[in-house]
Design a protein around this nucleic acid. Structure first.
Lengths: 350, 350
DNA sequence: TATACTTATGAAAACGCTTTCAGAAAACGC
DNA sequence: GCGTTTTCTGAAAGCGTTTTCATAAGTATA
């Protein structure tokens, strides 16, 4: 009789609110504990019982509430991604990798950008709503990073090396090595010696590493470093254009430009064309990133390709290792690849 | 005395697990109900008491658990975004708008892409973990859409018109109007009459609307529609190149190409250049989307700019209206804008 | 057949909040 | 001053799961 009235309740139930685990339990004639067990496979359940439960779940279209699960199990099954800004050429690739791997590992993905004065609403992402955090470049205040590290909260940094006292794992790309390959190519293959490095914003870590690579390539070829050849391009077309133009007006001599990234290269192109300097004959130009338009501009841009999507995937993998309590190496450097097109002076590109 | 032992507990507590609302309550000498009230501002609390609570929260670095809140309040405070694929030229802009507005409205953002055979793990995003859903193009099975609509779950569609029987609100751009402007420009300003439309994949809604605009422009100028001038470009450089090349080989005559999107335009450029047809003198080319490289290719591409970021923001706004039970209009069309550069034959671009 | 192990299951206690309900204290009206 | 409101606060009941613990079968052991 109890069953009957409860059945009646169940029939009207869908109208009011969606089913819970106990609806399923009643229908399958078991306890909610058993339903939970077949749901999670935590403990063996007699096959027939399990099947009954599964049928009930299907019939009731039951989907467990995430919040209740999280509360009870103290696992959010979610990883958080913090970026300083959404956008930029390789952001989609990065996110694609992150999303795919996150999903594949059975986690949810919560995204936060810290652009604007979001500093006010602190702690939007952290222990209370994620199991671990992916932090891209310096999008998180050092203070918060410290706090999280102190409570042993799993974090993986992307494209950002932490200070010594915070041994947080990092995934990034071989900026230095890539830059070195690029500059060496200009020297070895095209005999360039006065090579400009148009760097990114001050303090930008990727840019700093690229400059290191630039210098190492020079050293390796016994070319003295000339300070006047390093100027800011801001990783941005406009500033790159302006500063390139300024260099030309100032009469600084150079026969090649290593643009800090591909956007910078665009600005460089514009300035050079405007003063009728031929690319690559008079000035060779190379970029970094291999964004989509690199192959479409004229001449096609020689640049460095980094496995951005793989950076995303790998970061997630590392983070999940951390979540599982496994030990991981502190630094993963993804290999970069030289993409030779025409702007360096090579002609092997269709 | 009880207080004392509890204080002792509190002191060791941080080591073990993070603080809860009752830790705060004890420390401030109030009940957890009061803490909850100052946390949420649901009910007035005497200022001094409120201040004591705030101090305690600060001292304990207390952050409420999202799961507990969600469970108790039956609000997830999260909106879900479902896309078929992460990537594509305007994805970053779209996401940027969505993220910013979501945050501004005090919600969290959960992202899912349905690329790959994710059909298996159904219901990853829905009633159980979000308050509402943003669905981009046809990334959600119609069946699931139907189910959600049936239980009155808030949804806003982006760039996808639902079937008649599912009156779900939509936010999209004025594809038809944009295409019409583009094609009319080619006719009015440049006297073109044999205009190719290189459409997107079959069934692609944006493409269909653009074709409608193309036809209307022709009609408006009394140019008969020529079926042989509509070919598939797939919204993709490779296919566009191949099919453009084929048209040329087949000897089909045309004096302009309306590429379905900017990627398509790239393929068209390549094919035209390969057979030495001058752009825009012999063949005018226009695209759609105004992706980043549109201004960098040569000649600079005349195209249509859509307020993609605003589409993202508006979708979120609509969804949140829905969440608040407000009534909203069923369709929001964002205005598109003609961006005239050089590829149409105009010379007014620097 | 009695005894000691295994399983498979259910009852009930968390998990950490929000919210209802009721009572105490304060303010008000006359 | 004494009822009557109005404010503020606390106790306690959920919210929907997971998980521990105990128990009832079922099996193997003696």
């Amino acid at each position: 009789m109890k069953t009957l009235s409860e059945n009646a309740f169940k029939l009207m139930n869908p109208k009011n609110r969606s089913h819970t685990i106990s609806d399923v339990a009643h229908r399958a004639g078991v306890s909610i504990a058993t339903v939970s067990r077949v749901l999670n496979g935590t403990t063996p359940v007699v096959p027939e019982t399990a099947e009954r439960v599964r049928v009930a779940i299907e019939e009731l279209q039951f989907v467990p509430r995430t919040a209740a699960r999280t509360l009870a199990s103290r696992k959010t099954n979610t990883i958080g991604l913090i970026l300083s800004e959404i956008g930029g050429a390789f952001f989609p690739l990065l996110l694609k990798g992150i999303e795919a791997e996150t999903r594949a590992m059975g986690y949810e993905l919560l995204i936060h950008s810290t652009q604007g004065a979001h500093a006010s609403q602190r702690k939007t992402l952290g222990e209370h709503n994620t199991d671990g955090l992916l932090v891209f470049t310096s999008s998180l205040a050092m203070e918060e990073l410290e706090r999280l590290h102190k409570i042993n909260f799993p974090i993986v940094l992307m494209h950002q090396t932490p200070p010594e006292e915070l041994p947080i794992p990092v995934v990034t790309i071989e900026n230095k090595d890539g830059a070195e390959k690029l500059v060496s190519h200009l020297i070895d293959e095209h005999g360039r010696r006065r090579i400009v490095y148009m760097r990114g914003p001050v303090g930008h870590e990727d840019s700093q590493w690229r400059e290191r690579g630039y210098r190492e390539a020079l050293e390796k070829h016994n070319i003295p470093f000339a300070p006047e050849l390093v100027v800011e391009g801001g990783f941005e077309e406009g500033l790159a254009f302006a500063n390139m133009q300024k260099m030309i007006q100032d009469g600084i001599e150079f026969d090649a430009v290593f643009a800090g990234d591909d956007d910078t290269a665009i600005g460089v192109y514009r300035a050079l064309k405007m003063s009728n300097r031929l690319i690559p004959d008079e000035v060779a130009v190379v970029g970094f990133d291999d964004v989509q338009f690199a192959r479409y501009i004229s001449p096609a841009l020689t640049t460095i390709r980094a496995p951005i999507e793989e950076v995303g995937r790998e970061s997630v993998r590392q983070l999940i290792c951390l979540l599982n309590g496994e030990q991981i190496e502190g630094l993963v450097l993804m290999r970069t690849e030289l993409v030779i097109r025409e702007s360096c002076g090579c002609r092997n590109h269709p």
